[in-house]
Design a protein around this nucleic acid. Structure first.
Length: 272
DNA sequence: AATCGTTCCTGATAGC
DNA sequence: TGCTATCAGGAACGAT
């Protein structure tokens, strides 16, 4: 499932391969994948437009089409953005297709149909974007900032880490991986972490995100990059999807439990 | 303001 | 073998 490192990998792929391409035709195969507009208006508005650059905020992708027009995309669970030559087979879950004047195409495929694209004037004005917490890889994300965010919150630390209004971009995989690297149990009360633990957690979050981006993300399930290839960070996971396997630090067995409605993996020995 | 449960969706898989 | 139930979960939403 795409989280910050996977979305950033897709952004970089798009920036490398799609800048300058002109949309000859946008085909909407599933109207529900278009937010805030009908398929007809969406398609008509995009005809002849040129992709100028690609940005990211949290897990949202910004596909800029020149001044005053941006496609905001969210991949949710199973979305992929695939750059294909004309003669490749379309994926079964293709929902929106941008056919380029150059003959190739960009395909938004999304098995579970949770993802969407929305055409806006200014993505920064979207309420969902304005509500997001800080980017954990920004310079401003200091231990002091994280400490302020955790503040008096009484909920479990994992819940806060995946709350996009608190910190933007982490999902279940990277929240749990960062907690393991910091030696903190996912069930600890967020506001109860000691100063040294907050500092460790901040460093763990940033390190795991950077390493995952370098590895082009984690392909546990359906995530694929802009060329349909898997990331390889999943081989470096220490807890996620490793139930019953040995903790790389202390060799205890990794535990999986449904906690607050989410699969939760951790090492009961070295995460306290 | 924070937190909790519910909802959307479909394919893979476990269990019988 | 073949059917059905369960699970995966990001984020909006409503209730508390």
């Amino acid at each position: 499932m795409p989280e910050l490192p996977e979305v950033e990998t897709v952004r970089r792929d798009l920036q490398q391969r799609i800048v300058g391409k002109v949309i000859e035709r946008a085909a909407i195969l599933n109207p529900g994948s278009v937010a805030g507009s009908t398929a007809e208006r969406f398609s008509a508005a995009l005809r002849g437009k040129r992709f100028s650059s690609f940005g990211r905020r949290a897990k949202y992708l910004f596909l800029h089409l020149g001044p005053g027009q941006t496609l905001v995309a969210h991949l949710k669970m199973t979305g992929v953005l695939l750059h294909q030559p004309a003669n490749d087979l379309l994926p079964r879950a293709a929902r929106i297709i941008f056919y380029f004047t150059s003959g190739d195409r960009l395909v938004f495929a999304d098995t579970r149909k949770f993802g969407f694209m929305r055409l806006v004037d200014d993505p920064w004005e979207l309420p969902a974007i304005r509500r997001l917490g800080p980017e954990p890889l920004d310079d401003g994300f200091t231990a002091g900032e994280l400490s302020r965010i955790l503040g008096k919150r009484t909920g479990p630390i994992r819940a806060v880490l995946v709350d996009q209004h608190a910190i933007a971009g982490l999902g279940n995989i990277y929240a749990l991986e960062a907690l393991h690297r910091a030696g903190i149990s996912p069930k600890r009360k967020a506001g109860g972490l000691r100063r040294a633990e907050v500092a460790r957690l901040r460093r763990a979050i940033r390190r795991v995100l950077r390493e995952a981006i370098a590895a082009r993300g984690s392909s546990v399930d359906t995530y694929r990059d802009g060329q349909g290839k898997r990331g390889w960070f999943q081989v470096k996971h220490r807890v996620y999807d490793r139930e019953g396997k040995a903790c790389p630090r202390c060799h205890a067995r990794i535990v999986k439990e449904q906690f607050r409605g989410r699969g939760t993996y951790w090492c009961p020995v070295c995460q306290r």
